[in-house]
Design a protein around this nucleic acid. Structure first.
Length: 232
RNA sequence: GGAUCUGGAA
């Protein structure tokens, strides 16, 4: 609701009622501040949390790292990661996915792929989020060959593309003017039992509108509504 | 029956 100031009062209220806030309580607040880009305040809450004798957990760290990344402060995020490691907290798959996403968004795909190697060497298995993130980054950079290869790797590891993976591919096909293939991909995902969501449909509708096929776009509007996905 | 982190459209 954006009313973090009101929420901030609650740890005190909780304590005065005799219920100690736990890590989740603080994580929730820290996340709210990070989403507003108020990283400094979030770090202050981290201090409060620690001074209450609560150990930040991996979710706390991931929230802060993502906050810094989304705030464009990847250097800070990397530094924080180092500090975290030297305090004995190993990054998990979400941590890596977060950093990989930021690197992709900055167009630094090679660095992102380095992290893929790092996580693998640490025994962490990249998941469908990792691959979908990299696929999106590669497609947006026009590295279609590499994207295709990576998709094959993902499949060979037994990972199933999900609705986001398909939406990513559909988006790329649309942007590349391959609308028919995009619609084929939609059929394919449905045939695999996956349910397109509002983003999947919006992606296609956008592609169709950009190629002036408003008729088909309108059809998909009907289809999504009939599938119970309200247009947003 | 209830809470917190990462990927896709605009």
């Amino acid at each position: 609701n954006g009313e973090i100031e009101k929420a901030m009062i609650f740890p005190d209220v909780i304590v005065s009622n005799g219920h100690e806030p736990n890590a989740t309580t603080y994580n929730t607040l820290i996340n709210g501040l990070c989403r507003r880009g108020e990283i400094e305040k979030a770090m202050n809450i981290l201090d409060v949390m620690t001074s209450q004798g609560l150990e930040p957990d991996e979710i706390t760290y991931n929230i802060l790292i993502d906050g810094m990344c989304k705030n464009g402060e990847i250097e800070k995020a990397m530094g924080f990661l180092d500090a975290m490691v030297s305090n004995g907290h190993e990054p998990n798959i979400v941590t890596y996915n977060t950093l990989i996403n930021r690197l992709c968004k900055q167009g630094e795909i090679d660095k992102a792929l380095d992290f893929l190697d790092v996580m693998t060497s640490k025994g962490l298995q990249p998941d469908v989020v990792t691959y979908s993130t990299l696929l999106d980054g590669l497609c947006k950079k026009g590295e279609v060959e590499k994207a295709t290869d990576l998709f094959d790797v993902m499949i060979s590891k037994g990972l199933q593309p999900d609705v986001v993976t398909y939406s990513t591919i559909i988006n790329w096909l649309c942007k590349n003017g391959e609308i028919q293939k995009a619609m084929d991909a939609l059929d394919l995902m449905i045939s695999k039992g996956l349910e397109p969501d509002v983003v999947t449909y919006s992606t296609l509708i956008n592609g169709l509108c950009k190629t002036h096929d408003v008729e088909k776009a309108m059809n998909f509007l009907d289809v999504m509504s009939s599938q119970g996905h309200e247009p947003n």
